[in-house]
Design a binder for these strands. Structure first.
Lengths: 141, 141
DNA sequence: CAGTATCCCTTTTGATACTG
DNA sequence: CAGTATCAAAAGGGATACTG
C-alpha cells in the first residue's frame, strides 16, 4: 500500500514530538515516499471530478469547460487543468491565434482514470438513497 | 448528473455579486440540491480512504485504527469515523466497559463503497509510474 | 479568449490539553 | 481508552484587475 506512505508529506515534521525517522522505525509510517496521494487529490477534487467527467464527451475549450463545470472560477479551473495536464490526464492544445483558442481533451491515461471516477460517482449517485436513509435514522440533517 | 448540483453548497452566497437564484436562472447552476458531493468528500478524503481500506481486513478498535492510519490525529480520526458512521459505511459498537472499548467495522454499504475506493486507489498505484513519467516530461518536481 | 497576479476571507487541519 | 474542546496554522477558494 504505497498510498499510505505519502502520509509522510502530510505530517507536520518540525513541530512534532517524534522525529520522522523515529516514526518509521516504530513502524508508524511506511517508508516509500510516494505521490499517490497527490494524484488521488487531483482526480477526486471538486473541479477535478467535474473536468474529467465533462471531458469524457469530447474536446472542450477553456470557456466551454467553465460553463460546463458551473460555478468554477477562472483561477480554480486553470489550476485544476494545469494539474491534470501535468499528471498526464489532460491534453492541452493551443491554436496559436488571436484571440486565443485552446482545446482540452482527455489522454488515454485520463480516459482510464475518468472511468474509475465515473464508476465511483455512479455508485454514489445510485446508492445515495441508502446513505440518506442511514442519515435520517441517525437524525443527521 | 446530480453530483454537479451540489456545487450550490460550495458557492459563497453572501459575498457574491449575483444571487443564487439569478445564477440558477442563468443556467449557471443545476437546480437539484444533492449531497452526493459530501459523500464523495467523505470517502475520498485522506483519512476516509485510509479508514475504509484499513477496515477491509476486519474489525478494529479506535486505537488500532490510529496506528493503522499512521499520522492521523485523534480529532481527525474521530471526525472521519463519525461521518462514515452517519453515512452508514461504518458500524460502531461500544462495549460498555471501563476503560472504554469501541470497535469499528464496515457495514455492507461500506464494503461496497470501499470496493470502489480500492479499485480507484489500486488503479492509481498501478499506473503511478505513467503519471510520474508525464510529470518528468513536463519538468514537474 | 485564455489565462495570471493579488488580496482576502473561509474552511480544514493539527497540536495540545482535558474528561468520563 | 476513546474521545471532546480550544486555539493557531495552513490550505482552499473567490473577486477583481490586469496581460498577451
Amino acid at each position: 500500500m504505497q498510498l499510505i506512505a505519502h502520509l509522510e508529506k502530510k505530517m507536520p515534521q518540525e513541530a512534532h514530538s517524534k522525529t520522522l525517522t523515529e516514526k518509521i522505525r516504530l513502524g508508524e509510517l511506511f517508508t516509500v515516499d510516494c505521490p499517490s496521494r497527490d494524484v488521488l487529490k487531483h482526480v477526486t477534487s471538486l473541479w477535478g471530478v467535474l473536468c474529467l467527467i465533462s471531458l469524457r464527451d469530447g474536446t472542450l475549450r477553456f470557456s466551454e469547460l467553465r460553463r460546463k463545470a458551473s460555478g468554477v472560477s477562472e483561477k480554480m479551473l486553470a489550476q485544476t487543468l494545469k494539474r491534470l495536464e501535468e499528471d498526464g490526464f489532460v491534453r492541452r492544445f493551443s491554436h496559436q491565434v488571436v484571440p486565443p483558442y485552446v482545446e482540452y481533451s482527455l489522454t488515454l491515461l485520463g480516459r482510464e482514470v475518468s472511468d474509475q471516477i465515473a464508476m465511483l460517482s455512479d455508485w454514489i449517485e445510485l446508492n445515495l438513497w441508502r446513505v440518506m436513509e442511514s442519515r435520517r435514522e441517525k437524525g443527521v440533517v
